[in-house]
Design a protein around this nucleic acid. Structure first.
Length: 195
DNA sequence: TTCGAGATCGGA
DNA sequence: CCGATCTCGAAT
C-alpha cells in the first residue's frame, strides 16, 4: 500500500541558501523515516537574525547544529513533550533552518496509526509534533544528515511542485508578521488553514 | 464548535 | 519562568 518514493537525491547545494528562500522549495519534497513518511505540505523558515529563531540568542550546545552544514536535521524538544524536525539550511557558519510542520502521509500509514494512536489520516502528520511521533523522529537524531539515501531520516526530491501560499508563522510570539510559513495551496493536510 | 488548562523538561 | 504543541473535557 502507498506510493514508493525515491529518497535522498537532492543536490548537496540545494540547502545552501537562506532558509527563507529554501522553505518554499521544500514544499512538495518527500520525508521518510525507515519507510514511513509523506510529502511536505507546510514548512516555516527561521533565520539567524530572526527573533523567533533559536539561534537568535547565539550559539549554544543545542543550537550549534543550526550553524553547521546544511541538509542536516535540527531536532529539539518543545513544551517538554513534542519533538520538532527542522532541516538546516543556509551555508555553514550562518544559522538557518526550515521547520517541517505537516506532511501528506503517503507511506507506512499503518505504522503511523500505531504510533499516533489515531485512525483518521489527517491526525497523523498535521502538525510538527504529530509528524515526529508518526515517523518516530527522536532527539538524538539532531545533527543527522538528511541527504544520505541510507540515513534513518531522509529528505527526498520534490514529487510535485505545488501552488504555494505564504503566511505568518504559527505558535510564536515574536516576529509574528514575517510571512515565512509556506503551504501547498488547497491542501487538506495542513496543521491549520492557510491564508 | 470553541475554550482553557495540563502535561513536562531543557534552555536562558 | 517560558516555549516553533497537542489533547481532552467543559462550556456554548
Amino acid at each position: 500500500m502507498g506510493t514508493r518514493h525515491d529518497p535522498g537525491r537532492l543536490p548537496r547545494g540545494f540547502y545552501e541558501r537562506p532558509a527563507s528562500e529554501v522553505a518554499p522549495e521544500l514544499v512538495g519534497a518527500v520525508v521518510t523515516a525507515d519507510g514511513v513518511g509523506g510529502v511536505i505540505v507546510e514548512a516555516e523558515a527561521y533565520e539567524q537574525d530572526d527573533p523567533a529563531c533559536h539561534a537568535f540568542a547565539g550559539i549554544t550546545d543545542r543550537t550549534s547544529v543550526l550553524y553547521g552544514p546544511p541538509g542536516h536535521a535540527y531536532v529539539y524538544l518543545c513544551y517538554g513533550i513534542h519533538r520538532m524536525l527542522n532541516v538546516v539550511c543556509s551555508p555553514a557558519g550562518i544559522a538557518g533552518a526550515v521547520l517541517v510542520r505537516a506532511l501528506e502521509p503517503t507511506v507506512g500509514l499503518t505504522q503511523m496509526r500505531a504510533r499516533r494512536g489515531r485512525e483518521r489520516a489527517w491526525d497523523l502528520c498535521s502538525g510538527p509534533g504529530k509528524l515526529c511521533q508518526a515517523l518516530a523522529i527522536e532527539l538524538d537524531q539532531s545533527g543527522l544528515d538528511l541527504c544520505s539515501p541510507t540515513g534513518a531520516v531522509v529528505i527526498g526530491p520534490r514529487v510535485r511542485s505545488p501552488e504555494l501560499e505564504a503566511g505568518p508563522r504559527i505558535g510564536i510570539s515574536r516576529a509574528v508578521s514575517y510571512p515565512w510559513r509556506w503551504c501547498e495551496r488547497g491542501s487538506s493536510w495542513l496543521s491549520a488553514p492557510s491564508g
